[in-house]
Simulated assay, not measured.
Amino acid sequence: MTDTIDRVAIVTGGSGGIGRASALRLAADGMAVVVHYNGNRERADEAVRAITDAGGRAVAAGGDISDEAAATALFDVAEREFGGVDVLVHTAGIMPLSPLAQLDLDVFDRIQRVNVRGTFIVDKLAVQRVRTGGAIINFSTSIIRLRPPAYAAYAASKAAVEVISLILARELRGKDITVNTIAPGPTATPLFLHGKSEELIAQIANNNPYQRLGEPEDIVEAVAFLAGPARWVNGQTIFVNGGAA
């Protein structure tokens, strides 16, 4: 079992939703945390205050993870402030929705840039800079199994994330760094709730055996497991969706 004390985590998208919950949980488990944001510094600072007020260690760092220089600076912050990086939790992503035939290709390109290129960049940096015994945790989606209309571009980007993760796990043979993907189901985050009617949300919530949406705290149980004791879990996509798919 890996001791989480003195480990350092970078959480991309840490200013809200699953990212914020991940940062709080890993800090509660004893890790120092770099809370990444892109455009919402106030929310990131709030997460940092919540961690430090509870006796933990955290700093906020901003930047576009699809830009290699900005992503590199994020890892620089972790090394400068806490001495290194042990865990990458990559939750940052975007989810514009549209039927395929109506999707603006500029929007499609932006989805792929943030979700696919962003993952590729932060994973590449993690390979170079995460210490032995570390963990890379990417995020996919249960939408890949559920396949509802309007999600084609988003699902395509997250399918790419899964493949990147599975191949990277094999490329890291002999490095003692795990690479896994978490695929949440519908979760009550601003990203999911945006633009949906209460009726639609209730309908989606009823689709799993628990008859509710997931909460970020449900998802971070898997994050904490993969970031800490789960050394024999590697090259996997773990669906965390209450049985929805």
Rank of each mutant, 00 (worst) to 15 (best):
I5M: 14
V11M: 01
V11F: 01
G16Q: 14
G30P: 07
E42D: 13
A47H: 05
I51R: 06
D53P: 03
D53Q: 14
A54C: 09
R57P: 00
A61F: 08
A69C: 04
A70K: 10
A71Q: 06
F82Q: 02
F82S: 00
G84P: 06
L88W: 02
I94D: 09
L103P: 00
F108G: 00
D109Y: 01
R113V: 04
V116D: 05
I121W: 03
G134Y: 11
A150G: 00
A150I: 10
A153C: 12
A155I: 09
A156V: 14
A156G: 13
A156E: 08
S157W: 14
A159L: 12
V161M: 14
V161G: 09
V163R: 05
E171Q: 13
R173H: 12
R173Q: 11
D176E: 12
G185L: 02
T187L: 06
T189L: 01
P190G: 05
L191W: 01
L193E: 07
L200F: 10
A202G: 02
A205C: 07
E215I: 05
E215D: 15
P216K: 12
D218R: 09
I219S: 07
I219N: 03
V220G: 09
E221K: 15
P229E: 15
V233C: 15
N234A: 08
G235Q: 12
F239Y: 14
G242H: 03
